[in-house]
Design a protein around this nucleic acid. Structure first.
Lengths: 232, 232
DNA sequence: ATTATAAACTTACTTAAGGTAAGTTTGTAG
DNA sequence: CTACAAACTTACCTTAAGTAAGTTTATAAT
């Protein structure tokens, strides 16, 4: 059967086009025809592959969240200490490929679907939990369990805060700004003597370099929903 | 001329109705007819007072932000020390009247307008700056200027983070949870010995009591956009 | 009081969007 | 090479946004 593969290819193309449309026009002015036009097909094709606009937007939301979690996994592969894994989570969330003005604005638009979509809520909740659990796991190396959970929650909320702010403000936010803000939070939350500060510094640098290769690669960028990151 | 007062009364009624519609149906399913129905008028009346849907939504956004800043002003009036003014800012942002599930969900819906509306960006930016400046001003009493600015920014971002999270998750977030999370952040950010911790505790309690009266009053609730807080 | 007028409101219409249903084409398995 | 299922197309329906041309109504000036 070709159906499975063609269908999934089309759905990928179309959700990518929808993402682009949301960036260009905003959620409210994104129409199926515009989505079709970006993808080079007619409105009918869009509706053939997605039963309605809601499910198309759910697919966009799912994919953009998936990209984020894949980037964490990717950086985890090269991380060899609690310091490095902690920084892998942070940097995966704020590396240029994933975190840029267009994507943040699209995210801000897309989350407006969440309150009225069970599916989006499910995705959002699963994502929160995953990041929180990852953070907690690493922070347990620096803090007692209870404190680690509190700090993980704090960092998780702060990540969302930076994303919203970046999407709401009119000018772009640099990757490095966001990462430095997270560093500030981490240094305030963790008990930091000279040695551990140095280790954080070292870990951040190492993971940032790795991110350039792992997340900046063509292969990874192709997955990106933001066609500003040129594909192929 | 009656025009000014009637027009502004109608605009207030209609933006309130629009807010309610956004809560009930989500931004995408909010139609001018539904807004009219909630306000007890026809679609035509809505379009007579707002030139289009965008400007109606901008009005909603403006009003909901105004409510927030008014609540800060209200609590400031009763605050007599840096501790109390700091807590006034926090509690104004998270008191039940302002911070509840319906309102958070509506906010999450509404901010999707920001990336494509200069007016909303202006409002959002002005609000950010105001809160940040308020926070910085108070924090200077506890920290050197540079640190105060960093901490103020951190707290500002965190406030937004809590708001988004509260709007995205399917179950309500209690006022006290949010405030406690902010307390956690404050205690990590400020140099805290026993005396200052006690003073924070005292200030938080005092302002919380005052908020019950100042923000929980009928007069203040009437301003609220959330008709779940029954008016009159 | 009467009239002029400006704003409030109404109605009928236009255009565009989401969605449906009934078609035609096309690739592939038997 | 036939049958079938999925891909795509088209024509059409409904509802929403927005417009334009009306009617009503309050009030300010004569």
């Amino acid at each position: 059967m070709r159906s499975n593969s063609i269908r999934s290819i089309r759905r990928t193309e179309l959700s990518g086009a929808a993402f682009e449309a949301v960036i260009l026009y905003g959620l409210r002015k994104t129409t199926l025809e515009k989505v079709g036009k970006i993808a080079g097909v007619s409105k009918g094709v869009v509706l053939h592959h997605f039963k309605d606009k809601t499910s198309l937007l759910e697919a966009v939301f799912r994919r953009s969240n998936l990209l984020l979690s894949e980037s964490v996994v990717e950086l985890y592969r090269y991380s060899q200490s609690p310091y490095e894994r902690l920084w892998a989570i942070i940097i995966a969330n704020f590396f240029e490929t994933i975190f840029n003005h267009r994507v943040c604005q699209a995210w801000v638009s897309l989350i407006s679907e969440v309150p009225h979509s069970k599916e989006c809520q499910r995705i959002q909740l699963a994502n929160d939990r995953r990041i929180r659990s990852n953070l907690t796991h690493e922070l347990k190396n620096f803090l007692p369990e209870k404190d680690a959970e509190l700090a993980a929650h704090h960092l998780g909320v702060h990540i969302d805060g930076i994303w919203v702010r970046a999407g709401l403000r009119p000018h772009p936010m640099k990757s490095i700004e966001a990462i430095s803000e997270m560093e500030y939070a981490i240094l305030k939350l963790l008990p930091c003597d000279k040695t551990s500060t140095a280790k954080h510094f070292e870990a951040r640098n190492k993971i940032e370099s790795i991110a350039e290769i792992a997340l900046g690669s063509k292969a990874f960028k192709e997955k990106s929903l933001d066609s500003q990151n040129p594909k192929i």
